[in-house]
Structures are given as C-alpha cells and as structure tokens.
C-alpha cells in the first residue's frame, strides 16, 4: 500500500514544488479512519492528497501578493506625506523628513482603510483565496509602513 502511495506522489506534478503531504485513503468514497479490512473484496480505492506545507514557489507567490496589495497604498500615502512636509515648510520654512516619515505611517493606514475597507472590499477575497486573512494584511501594511516611515525619520536624524 505504501508503495502505491509513493508511486502516486511521485507522479504528481505538485511534488516538484511541495514538501509535505497528508494522505487520506477512501474506499467507495468513504474516508477511512482505520486500516481497511483484510480479505478479497472489490474496492474502489482513491487517495486524496492534502497539501499541508507550502512550497518555496507558494511562499514567493504570497510575498509577491502582499507586495502588490501594499503597492496600491504607497503612492497616495507618499503624496500625502510629502504634501504635509511642504505644508510644514510653508509654515515654518523648514522641510522635515521626520514629519514626512511619521505622516507616511498614518497616511498609509488611512489609505488602507479607504481603499480596501471602503472602496474595494471585494479585493480582499483575492488574498483570502491565497490563504491570507485580513489581520495578516493589516499587520503587513503596518509593518511595511513602519519600515518606510522610520527609514525616512532615520535619514533625517543622520542628515541632521
């Protein structure tokens, strides 16, 4: 029986990419929870393969999806942050990357809410189907925004 399983997996195209599987054995469509009875019976055997570990290609696809998800927020957030920076320059005659950085973090969270929660909530389903949930998407947005925002602040601190 194990040879049979092995054979099936090696014939599977996905084996090229995936590292681990859970197998379930079914007889006449009924999933088995214990070994089948020994004897001469006529069975319709089927093997269901549940992929449990993601491949490196899957991981890459998820990372790229998150970057595409975030890409939509970058331009409006940066535009707002620069606009606030210039406003500060007009008022105080000092352009501060620190303001731009902090504004970017807040603006990106605002645009995340505006673009994905209000304008295109349906787009979440694309990412849900890839195994990403809303909290992961919000968390990643915040994380990437912090990196970009704080990078701008650090540059300002170094240059100062």
């Amino acid at each position: 029986m194990s040879k049979y399983f092995k054979h099936k997996i090696h014939n599977s195209h996905d084996n090229l990419f995936c590292k681990e599987y859970i197998l379930t054995l079914a007889i006449n469509g009924n999933e088995l929870t214990k070994p089948p009875p020994i004897g001469e019976f006529v069975y319709e055997l089927s093997v269901n393969i549940i992929k449990v570990k993601t491949s490196s290609r899957d991981t890459m696809r998820i990372i790229i999806s998150i970057l595409f998800f975030y890409k939509k927020l970058v331009i409006p957030s940066l535009a707002m942050a620069i606009a606030v920076g210039f406003l500060e320059w007009l008022l105080t005659e000092q352009f501060s990357l620190k303001t731009v950085g902090y504004t970017y973090i807040l603006a990106s969270m605002y645009f995340h809410y505006l673009i994905y929660e209000k304008r295109n909530p349906g787009e979440y389903y694309f990412y849900y189907n890839m195994g990403l949930c809303k909290s992961i998407l919000w968390g990643t947005s915040l994380f990437l925004s912090l990196i970009i925002g704080l990078f701008l602040v650090i540059i300002w601190v170094i240059c100062k």
Partner: peptide
C-alpha cells in the same frame, strides 16, 4: 471561494494574477 462580486485586484496585470493564483 468565488464570491458574487468581482474580486480581482484592478491594478495587477492578468498574466501576473494568473501566476499568483495558480500553480505552474
């Protein structure tokens, strides 16, 4: 799950969407 309403991100090229969604 295929929802009732459109769910494809509107800023991504179709070929990229296919690459992201499906295996090779």
């Amino acid at each position: 799950y295929l929802p009732q309403n459109h769910f494809l991100p509107n800023h991504i090229k179709v070929s990229t969407i296919i690459y992201l969604f499906c295996d090779k």
